[in-house]
Design a protein around this nucleic acid. Sequence first.
DNA 1: GAGAGATTTGCTT
DNA 2: AAGCAAATCTCTC
Length: 168
Amino acid sequence: MSLVPTPSRPVTTSFRIPPIGPFLSGLIVAFGEDGHPRSLRPRTGKEDASIPALAADHAFVCRLRRVFEGAETDNTPLPPEIHPFDRQVLDFVRRIPFGKTVSYRDVAEAIGRPRAARAVGGALARNPLLLLVPCHRVTRASGEEGGYSGGVGVKSQLLEWETRRKRG
DNA sequence: GAGAGATTTGCTT
DNA sequence: AAGCAAATCTCTC
């Protein structure tokens, strides 16, 4: 755990984000020096209590809320430290529309690596921007949901939320 | 270089 | 229909 900023470990400041929607009890975001988010994940409840809160009307929170509700697709640049393969995967996954799901293999084929379904799973496991890059919309070809670094319970709730909302 | 995945497929009961 | 193993590609240590 080095405190020295390096290209692979840029300086960040973390904030607590208030609850969004009916089941997310909050999120943790870290901004890079460039002002763009470097990581975003649902709260686990075990976070350091000293993390400051981000105001509920902060521009980032408002945008996040719109993305969550499907009113907007996010377009923030991916953190620069992401490796090329992961970047390819995330770039494709972020274009999956609200309420739609695709399989790990679909993603693998879409990026021209039809045998790389498992590697796609690995790339998604490293997704630093949950929700903004909607990796919860990637499920197993068998119909099972597959894993989620934000917690499988959250993944299933997100999917249910999106299908319900899409149907209206 | 070895080992580990948020998988997939085919083969075997 | 369920379980197992091998194939497959990339990242991390």
